[in-house]
Nucleic acid binder design. Structure first.
Lengths: 202, 202
DNA sequence: TAAATTAACGAACGGTCGTTCGGATAATTA
DNA sequence: TAATTATCCGAACGACCGTTCGTTAATTTA
């Protein structure tokens, strides 16, 4: 097996652990999920898990890091395309909502803070989150300044961006595919509501 | 001391415990907060806590029940007043946001689900939540149907209401009074954004 | 004041927690 | 094939968990 394949195999094993752990932790909470629980759902022994990470806290970190890195990559790819401001905003929302709905468990963990982590790890996550937040704020700010003749303060734009992310991040509190439609329906609804208000049909 | 005073004293003791427990649990999570931690922050002994509730799960239940009951009472009071549909929506948002900002820790717990509770208790909370949700859906539905000539499906209104509550319930993820203004500024922003879109100055 | 109730406590219980260790097995490399 | 490395495991460690018990102090009631 080639070197890359080894790495892939390893990452594949880790990825599977991260997925299943996130699913359990999303239901039971970080402290409410024991290493023995995780060993069971991943089909491994308790001590065998420590081959993939050095302790439980690092597992939580890896789940967060992987998620935010994916979100960031998607959004950076979006910025590379030649799009209008409106299309950028629409794309940002669509990306975020799709990823959210496809990774409900991970996102539940990612949106519940990182109080349990040491300073270095939470700093790394904080930087990722901030980069992602700033990216969103820029897109929202460009859209708002382009649409309206009035100028907006930086604070106003930041707060408005938080409102947008609130609509998206609250999804885990209610969404089910059969009841509330496909991801595209939800992201369209959010885009219309955010740009034109709740009664818009545009 | 009168009977009522006794009850007040007792409730006062319990209320203080619920407040301080909610504050700690909001930071550390339910499982991440030990009864010994709670004993310390409430200035009581470990075993002394069990005078006020029979176990840790009931404490979590009481925090949730008290919160949702307060929210429901506020909103029911609102419906008793003679207001326009628009004023009702504005009042609903204002009430929710004010309570949220004044009780950030409790709301963080209340919005993080009730997976840890037994069937009977979580059913009681589920009923409270549903009553509060339906109340919001009615107000939002009335507003939307009144504003637009087109008709909206029940599902569309429900989803739109979730978007509104998303903007409000995400507050704990970012709000600080010094950075983001008073509660009234936030609720005004949410009302305008929800009714007329992000660029509205209404 | 006597009785009754409320509020509070220290000590201890069995159980579960995260983590470690030494060694086994499987896969890859030289 | 031999050496090396990646996976994986059972057993055990001390620490901490939620809860219970018997008892005492404080407060209210009769």
């Amino acid at each position: 097996m080639s070197n890359q394949a080894v790495i892939n195999k390893r990452l594949s094993g880790l990825d599977e652990i991260l997925d299943k752990s996130a699913q359990l932790m999303a239901h039971m909470g970080y402290h409410g999920t024991s290493m023995r629980d995780l060993a069971q759902v991943t089909g491994r022994s308790l001590s065998g898990l420590y081959h993939y990470f050095s302790n439980k806290e690092e597992l939580l970190f890896l789940i967060n890091q992987r998620g935010f890195t994916s979100l960031l990559k998607m959004s950076n790819d979006l910025l590379k395309q030649d799009l209008t401001t409106k299309e950028r905003l629409s794309g940002l929302i669509s990306n975020h909502v799709s990823y959210f709905i496809d990774h409900l468990s991970e996102m539940r963990i990612m949106t519940s803070g990182s109080m349990e982590m040491n300073e270095q790890r939470s700093h790394i996550l904080w930087k990722l989150k901030e980069e992602y937040a700033r990216l969103g704020q820029n897109i929202v700010g460009n859209y708002m300044r382009e649409q309206a003749e009035t100028d907006y303060s930086e604070d106003a734009i930041i707060r408005k961006t938080f409102l947008l992310y609130g609509m998206m991040n609250w999804i885990f509190g209610w969404y089910s595919e059969q009841e509330h439609g496909a991801a595209k329906d939800v992201s369209d609804d959010i885009f219309r509501t955010f740009t034109c208000g709740c009664c818009s049909t545009e």
